[in-house]
Design a protein around this nucleic acid. Structure first.
Lengths: 254, 254
DNA sequence: GCGATTTTTTTCGTTTATGTTCGTTTTTTG
DNA sequence: CAAAAAACGAACATAAACGAAAAAAATCGC
């Protein structure tokens, strides 16, 4: 196997986990430590990674807006959900991806899809998709929210209203026991609502931790969602409600 | 079986797996390694795959690589111009930064400025500014152009027309002897024109190499620019023309 | 079926990638 | 603060992959 394959995978892992270790990578690829060291040196030379003793990290400068920590939270669960979700996304459609680490995970799994038109209000998603071929990327305008790379505000909603999507993939800050999607940010709520309004079909990606959180603003109800992707069985009477609402639930265990 | 069939299947596999190996394909098709190598060379020549030692990958990074190389070209000259430009940018204003490595350099030099509202159609600029405090960042919508991270198209122009800027900082692909600003991309031209139209004051940042290039589309004339930042004295009668036009010329030597 | 053409296989010298070893540097630990 | 452990990089050896070119096989038109 060539170093080129590893380089790409190493960057993938680094982006997913925030960091990589020499030992871990050697084990993962089944090669010697020295080989990995060479790889990391190469990547560091190109400025794609920052070399540290024992491994490497994402370079502090570019395209990462300082929320890598949250990103590593539940990384495996998110990857599993994202994979399940990506499998249900056909080729040749237009889709929207909104803000959130879960939707970013989905973006990463879209490699290999063909002829997609992806609209997003998430700078990170745009950065990820920029590296994929065979995928037209449209970014909505908006005010940049540093915390998560989101584009929000009037500009974002207005842009969205100009489109009609085959599929929308959204995340949310929290999910309550009544099956309501909640968010921390009022601005983001109106963006999400605009998305739902303009989409023929909607997928929600939300790991189980979202059920333990709370947030002030209501986006919508699960009844308006076609499919929910999560990583553990839903509690209480939510499964029954979803069945009632005709909302499919896909549980992708990590 | 003819190579055409294999080519199609190879691309299919590559898209599905993200990569292919010479060994794996040889086994899969029951042919020799050499045959597969020839196939991969062909596909790579057409730009459909990126050849690597031991196999091939989807050509994800090709456009980025070109850009990263371009970015380091004249890095010192760009930094000098950018510094001079940033010094002339006051605090507490709204400004626009468009596509180009020169404007990215300016963005980097904006660290330390206070209370700016920066609008940009350049993903890289947005990424850079995201790390700066005390600076509201607005991103225009648009189709993402992988080559340079630019956001172009109708969405971009429309967004720009909703603003009025105190200052616009623009770059261009080329600058001809008549003092005309030129660009490779028609889409980008209308974006740049919209910017000029909506700005009270305009700075152009263009290193001397732009004078040696040529490009098909005309953005505007230097006469419409307030200040030109460059890294070497202008040739021929351009200085006289600029004086005539009341266009200030700032030469920042690296 | 025959010759021309294309495609694939075979062969071989060259290039590239990986593994190994070992002395040096950095980090951890007592 | 010093000893021990871990990580590092350079140098060399080995293995894998490479491309060019000749030979063999398949395909096509007649």
């Amino acid at each position: 196997m060539s170093h080129a394959f590893r380089h790409r995978d190493i960057l993938d892992i680094a982006r997913k986990e925030g960091k990589v270790t020499v030992e871990g990578l050697a084990q993962h690829f089944g090669v010697t430590l020295q080989t990995i060291r060479r790889d990391l040196s190469d990547l560091a030379e190109d400025g794609r990674l920052e070399r540290v003793h024992g491994g490497a990290m994402l370079p502090s400068s570019t395209s990462n807006i300082g929320y890598e920590q949250r990103q590593t939270l539940n990384a495996k669960a998110k990857a599993a959900m994202a994979k399940a979700c990506a499998q249900r996304i056909p080729n040749n459609i237009s889709l929207f991806l909104n803000i959130g680490t879960s939707t970013e995970a989905v973006a990463r799994e879209l490699r290999g899809h063909k002829n997609l038109l992806v609209v997003t209000n998430n700078m990170n998603v745009a950065n990820i998709l920029a590296e994929m071929q065979d995928c037209e990327v449209v970014v909505t305008g908006g005010n940049l929210r540093r915390a998560d790379g989101g584009l929000v505000g009037k500009l974002a909603t207005e842009t969205i209203l100009q489109f009609k999507f085959d599929l929308a993939i959204i995340g949310c800050s929290a999910l309550d026991r009544d099956g309501d999607l909640l968010d921390f940010d009022i601005q983001e709520v109106s963006v999400s609502q605009a998305i739902l309004q303009q989409s023929r079909k909607t997928y929600l990606v939300a790991d189980a931790s979202k059920l333990k959180r709370n947030a002030p603003a209501r986006i919508a109800s699960l009844s308006e969602i076609d499919t929910l992707f999560t990583d553990a069985a839903l509690p209480a009477d939510l499964p029954a409600k979803c069945a009632d609402w005709d909302t499919e639930v896909v549980v992708a265990r990590p």
